[in-house]
C-alpha cells in the first residue's frame, strides 16, 4: 500500500505521453498541476466546464469544446472542436516496451478490409484466392439505403472472405483479408 501511494505521487509529478494513431508523441510533465511542462516549456492549459454542461479548453484566448468519446484502460478517443483524435497514454517505460515489442513482431504483409459502416452485404464480387488490384470492387454493402461499393486499397490476393451475401455487419467488422503482393 505504502509503495502504491509512492507510485501515485511520482505519476502525478512525472511524465505521461499521449501517442497518436499516426505515432506522434505528445509528452506532458505534471499533467495535474497548474503549470504543465510541454516540449520543455511551462504552459498553462485551462480546462473548464460551462454552465450549459460543455467542457472546453481555453488556449490562446480561444475556446475549444471537448469530450472523451471513448476510453478503455489507456486508450482514449477525444473529440475536440468537432474532430476526434485517438491516443494511447503511455509512461516513458511503457512506451519503450511497446516500441521494443513492435520491432520484434516484424511487419505483416496482409491487410484487412473492415466495414466502414454498419449495413448488409448485398453482393460479394470476388472469391478467395482471386487476385485484386487497388481500387477494384470487392463487395457491395448496403447502408442507409445506399449501395456502397467497398474496394481494395492494395494490390494482392484475397486470403479470406469473412462474410457472405445477406450477412449483416457492424462497423469495423472484418470483411476481407488480402495478402499484399
Amino acid at each position: 500500500m505504502a509503495e502504491k501511494n509512492k507510485g501515485a505521487k511520482t505519476t502525478k509529478k512525472s511524465q505521461l505521453i499521449a501517442l497518436s494513431a499516426a505515432n506522434k508523441q505528445y509528452s506532458f510533465t505534471n499533467p495535474l498541476e497548474r503549470v504543465v511542462k510541454y516540449k520543455g516549456e511551462n504552459v498553462k492549459i485551462k480546462l473548464y466546464e460551462d454552465p450549459n454542461g460543455f467542457s472546453y479548453v481555453l488556449w490562446k484566448n480561444k475556446k475549444y469544446p471537448l469530450e472523451i468519446i471513448e476510453k478503455s484502460q489507456n486508450k482514449y478517443t477525444v473529440m475536440l472542436n468537432g474532430v476526434w483524435h485517438s491516443f494511447t497514454v503511455e509512461t516513458p517505460f511503457s512506451l519503450k516496451r511497446k516500441k521494443f515489442l513492435e520491432s520484434q513482431a516484424g511487419t505483416s504483409s496482409s491487410v484487412t478490409i473492415d466495414a466502414p459502416m454498419p449495413g448488409k452485404i448485398v453482393e460479394v464480387l470476388i472469391e478467395e484466392g482471386a487476385e485484386v488490384k487497388s481500387g477494384e470492387s470487392l463487395l457491395i454493402l448496403e447502408a442507409m439505403k445506399m449501395q456502397n461499393e467497398i474496394s481494395s486499397h492494395v494490390d494482392g490476393v484475397v486470403k479470406k472472405i469473412a462474410i457472405r451475401q445477406n450477412d449483416s455487419v457492424m462497423k469495423d467488422d472484418l470483411l476481407i483479408e488480402i495478402e499484399k503482393s
Binding site: K24, F28, Y38, F87
Partner: peptide
C-alpha cells in the same frame, strides 16, 4: 494545436 490539446486532455484524464 488541436491534436496537442486533445492529447493533453487524454493525459490529464488518465493521470
Amino acid at each position: 494545436d488541436e491534436e496537442m490539446l486533445a492529447a493533453f486532455f487524454a493525459v490529464y484524464d488518465y493521470a
